[in-house]
Design a protein around this nucleic acid. Structure first.
Length: 430
RNA sequence: UCCGGCGUAGCUCAGCUGGCAGAGCGGGUGACUGUUAAUCACUUGGUCGUUGGUUCAAGUCCAACCGCCGGAGCCA
């Protein structure tokens, strides 16, 4: 008999098939058992009628536990009462693997309990929907880069030094020296951009920051494009087109999952190109008008980002922050030496920063001075300054945090649900 | 690191001015031919986070510690 996936069940109406899956839930009513079977592609109700199956099969179905794995055979039939449109009229059931007292019941659970059981929680409909959307977003990212002729260049995970200061790095032994887990692939992408033109990396990054907020993980995934012969203006255009492309893909392909998550889809459909652009100066004035006590020269706080982004339906691009609050590699604005040619993209609905990027300092003398001013070890960055000695060109790029984009598109309060196995200040298990 | 809050059954929680440890869900048994987090009956289940203190008596009051949650800073 043919084994089929639940998502394909409509192609087999009135045919006998075998389904392989796990028992999601069960209800009984005298001479009937209703088995909700889950196989990762969908959930279907399998109806076991006492008159249709052997007595020992009916008895067995009364005692199978939640998440018991089953091979169920029967006939596919259309049924208006089913959310799927079809159910299975069961002929035989075989237990593949027993399960009893499964910890995650259909009732409510707390965050800590669910995260302690993340390896099992993945089976539930909500994590399932989120991770399907994450998968779609990752694919959209790669498709966009592929279509725009970006070359995938994988950045190293072990690095000899920080790119933005050492306080937030995970340190590890590397034979007879120290190594750090990467907090960005950007510097390596700059080298690669000089070789390939347009490049990107996509992988995990690590921050040892002891931050406990809904927007932070110690291990998170970032996609970092870098473009040679590119200025801030073009950088912002690529960034907005990229985010819009991802959004459209999710709306097109993952509507069912958004519904499971009860996402306000209309809010996502309001996003249009081009995204509003605000200079840092304008943002500060705007925030002060809205009642914030923020002063020129400081970075935007979480509350400020929320207040600002709630003024718009689309993500916004805030550009040209004060040089002093930004990393050493940011290029100075030739029109105002207090400013950096950088940009942050803030997602709407208060989701905050999803992209940070900008034009890089391409002058050898200025970059060397900046490294010293930031008290960074020059030896560790010697290779990086070489890029300014041998055919330096204007170049720019950005980094997008995948988890924050997933949180925004899914409408989630906390990024811990956007990654299969979150790593946080208080969590390294499972 | 700082500021708040919470630790009671497998889970979610109630437990008042200190006086016999509780509910719902889950697990088990049974009833029911159409259930949708099924329903109904019975039943099972406890080192009240840890240590110390006050008291005739502490889940309850006090102290310290541990764990977790929320927020801030920093960032994607």
């Amino acid at each position: 008999m043919k084994s089929v996936r639940i998502s394909q069940i409509g192609d087999f109406e009135d045919q006998e098939v075998q389904l392989n899956g796990w028992l999601y839930n069960k209800r009984s009513s005298g001479k009937l058992h209703f088995l909700q079977l889950r196989d990762g592609s969908g959930i279907i109700q399998c109806v076991v009628f006492k008159g249709d199956v052997a007595p020992e099969i009916f008895e067995l179905c009364g005692h199978v536990g939640q998440e018991c794995s089953l091979a169920v055979a029967g006939s596919v039939r259309k049924d208006e009462r089913s959310p799927l449109g079809y159910e299975l009229g069961v002929k035989t059931v075989e237990v593949v693997g027993e399960s009893s007292e499964y910890p995650i019941t259909p009732k409510e659970h707390g965050v800590s309990f669910l995260l302690d059981h993340r390896h099992l929680w993945l089976r539930s409909s909500r994590p399932h929907a989120i991770l399907k959307i994450r998968s779609e977003i990752c694919k959209a990212c790669r498709d966009f880069m592929e279509e725009r002729d970006f070359t995938l260049i994988d950045a190293p995970i072990f690095t000899p030094a920080a790119c933005e200061g050492t306080s937030t790095l995970f340190e590890t032994d590397y034979f007879d020296q120290k190594a750090f887990l990467t907090q960005s692939g950007q510097l390596y992408m700059e080298a690669a951009a000089m070789a390939f033109g347009n490049v990107y990396c996509f992988g995990p990054t690590f921050r040892a920051e002891k931050s406990k907020t809904r927007r932070h993980l110690t291990e998170f995934w970032m996609i970092e494009p870098e473009m040679a012969f590119c200025d801030l203006k073009k950088d912002m255009e690529v960034a907005e087109e990229f985010v819009y492309y991802i959004l459209k893909r999710v709306l097109e392909k993952r509507r069912e999952e958004l519904k499971v998550l009860e996402r306000d889809i209309e809010a996502l459909e309001k996003v249009t190109l081009p995204f509003p652009r605000l200079s840092y100066d304008e943002a500060i004035n705007r925030l002060q008008d809205l009642g914030s006590d923020i002063k020129w020269g400081t970075d935007l706080g979480g509350d400020d980002e929320t207040i600002l982004s709630k003024q718009y339906d689309s993500p916004i691009l805030v550009h040209r922050y004060p040089l002093d609050v930004k990393a050493f590699y940011m290029k100075e604005d030739p029109e105002d030496s207090r400013l950096a040619l950088c940009v942050d993209m803030l997602a709407p609905e208060g989701y905050g920063e999803i992209i940070g990027g900008g034009q890089r300092e391409d002058d050898f003398a200025i970059l060397t001075r900046k490294i010293n001013e930031h008290e960074l070890p020059f030896e560790a960055f010697k290779w990086y300054t070489d890029l300014r000695k041998y055919g330096s060109v204007p170049h720019a790029g950005f980094g997008m945090g995948i988890e924050r984009v997933v949180a925004w598109l899914c409408g989630l309060k906390h990024v811990r649900e956007t990654i299969p196995f979150p790593r946080m200040l208080q969590r390294l298990y499972p």
